[in-house]
Design a protein around this nucleic acid. Structure first.
Lengths: 152, 152
DNA sequence: GCGAGATATTTCAAGTTTAAACTATTTAAA
DNA sequence: TTTAAATAGTTTAAACTTGAAATATCTCGC
């Protein structure tokens, strides 16, 4: 949302920054989702497969923390992935409140088949910036993300 | 989603960039939404009020383009805002396919009451970066956003 | 004038998202 | 030991989101 109204120099810069952040993120998410769609997964479903594929089985709560989504959301995403036979939930024996989520055989095959292709597509998208720009942007976003995590 | 697996230097940089972009955007969106919530609006509802407040009445389609959401989504957001008496829809006389959306008196009052406060909050959030960093980040995100808009 | 294609919006189905309430279980303090 | 508080996960209600199909209207070539 471009704003031409003046709220002071600092506020204008901040507002414009957030607009561009939202816009770039939204555009990228949509392009990425379009790629992932070819494998029959949605964006959050892919994030789960990616996390479990790279890091191995983990609890529902840890997955949610990694993906920055709430527990209720995680439940729905896992319900759908479980229905499709991609992940399985195992109630922990030591602490019966905990559910550990892992990839099924089908899920592992899916991960191995698609992740490299998707990485290629992401790399292609990022290449609209030079490597130096990517590095610079990455550093700034990292600082921003870490700082925002501490707010409130 | 942090990945420690190697897919090549360039791919690793690209993947890490996208993770940080998604993370920063998600964190900001959540903090912003928490602020907006105090005024009884959701984030997309606020975006509509903001656009109409700054730029005046416009069509459903133009609003959707500005906010990067699909038409179907726009319909729902406007339905809810209209129900709450914040916006009104007027069928265009010249082209009867077109619907022009504008703020009601209540909507205008809301805009004037809340936008400055929200701008202050956004400025506060952005201040975790220096003004120079904000400017640099803004420039890089602008380049990225413009380039991604042209993809496909 | 008329019909084909384009355009603006809505409707629909499926999925994601959050916060809050709820259940089950564990931990810890009195 | 027993009960209160904390924790893990699910359920629920409301909203957002997309893409595709449907509806209404407009435009343009004939």
């Amino acid at each position: 949302m471009k704003t031409t109204v003046q709220y002071g120099k600092e506020a204008d810069l901040a507002l414009s920054l957030w607009v561009k952040l939202a816009r770039a993120s939204s555009l990228f998410t949509r392009l990425s989702a379009r790629d992932i769609e070819r494998y029959g997964l949605t964006q959050p479903q892919f994030s789960v497969v990616e996390a479990l594929g790279h890091l191995g089985p983990m609890t529902t709560g840890d997955l949610g923390k990694k993906m920055l989504v709430t527990g209720g959301c995680m439940t729905v995403i896992l319900d759908n992935l479980e229905r499709d036979g991609v992940v399985e939930r195992v109630r922990s024996v030591e602490d019966r409140r905990v559910v550990t989520v892992g990839l099924t055989t089908k899920g592992t095959e899916l991960f191995e088949r698609i992740f490299r292709q998707h990485a290629t597509r992401i790399t292609e998208l990022a290449s609209v910036l030079t490597v130096e720009e990517q590095q610079q942007l990455s550093d700034l976003l990292k600082k921003l993300g870490l700082a925002l995590k501490e707010v409130q």
